[in-house]
Computed example of a mutant assay.
Amino acid sequence: MTDDLVLYTNPMSRGRIARWMLEEVGADYRREVLAFGGSMKGEHYRRMNPMGKVPALTHRGKVVTECAAICAYLADAFPEAGLAPPTPDRADYYRWLFFAAGPLEAAVTNRSLGVQVPQDKRGMVGYGSYEEVLDTLETALAGRAFIATDRFTAADVYVGSHLMWGMQFGSIERRPAFESYVAGLAPRPAHLRASALDDADMQQMQATG
């Protein structure tokens, strides 16, 4: 294990996205599991991330927070993994990576919280409406194995994670294009490894109270 690359996470958080990305990268890393309302809000961690939320990543003394940023950073920091397209071909990669970080997450969160944006106020929110967001993503994924290019990238880690989690817990509608897309991502060895590691951390946390 190494202190050069450290993931601060909780297995019941968006940290699962970052761990999947780390497993795809294949670099040696260490993980620190933080407790909600406990070590996550402690002074030591807040010096690193004043939000007191996970995940956070440290790499050679630099701190990266926010899952989309962590995915993009790791793809660039470890180019040998091939998880980002060549720079001239990154338009769709950036587009959908940050579509999921912005409109998709905001729309899904607001819907889950029961927030209804009035028809005449939709111009004030970046996503317009939940239905428009899902329709846009469905159109982008129709007939495609990957969201941005003809191969797997960090954008698939991020978009795929949102769809897997959302459909599992009912915050995102199950649509054929979404189900076909995640069915192709779920068996990836890195995803299976990351899920097993997070599930083991969850069991350990439950056993220790």
Rank of each mutant, 00 (worst) to 15 (best):
G114M: 13
V159P: 00
I70Q: 04
I147R: 07
L137I: 05
A77G: 10
G82I: 05
H162M: 05
P118M: 11
A155F: 09
Q119H: 04
A75V: 11
S129W: 08
F169E: 11
L137E: 01
V125W: 08
V115S: 11
N110Q: 13
F169I: 15
D120Q: 12
L163I: 15
C71E: 05
A142Q: 07
A145H: 12
Y130W: 12
A177N: 01
V157E: 00
T87Y: 06
R174Q: 15
T109G: 14
A145N: 12
T149A: 10
G160T: 02
M51T: 08
D156L: 05
W165K: 03
A148H: 09
M51Y: 04
A56F: 04
A186W: 06
G102C: 12
P176R: 06
V115L: 15
S112L: 12
V54R: 01
D76P: 03
A145W: 08
D76I: 06
P50D: 07
H162W: 03
M124H: 13
P118D: 13
P189H: 08
F169W: 15
Q168M: 14
L97Q: 04
F169P: 10
F98I: 06
E179Y: 11
K62H: 13
T58E: 15
G170T: 11
K53F: 01
Y94W: 15
V64R: 03
F169M: 11
M167F: 09
R95I: 05
Q119D: 10
P85S: 12
A91P: 01
D92Y: 06
V54W: 01
A140L: 06
R95K: 13
T109Y: 13
P55T: 10
A145D: 15
F169T: 15
A72C: 10
A107F: 10
L74H: 09
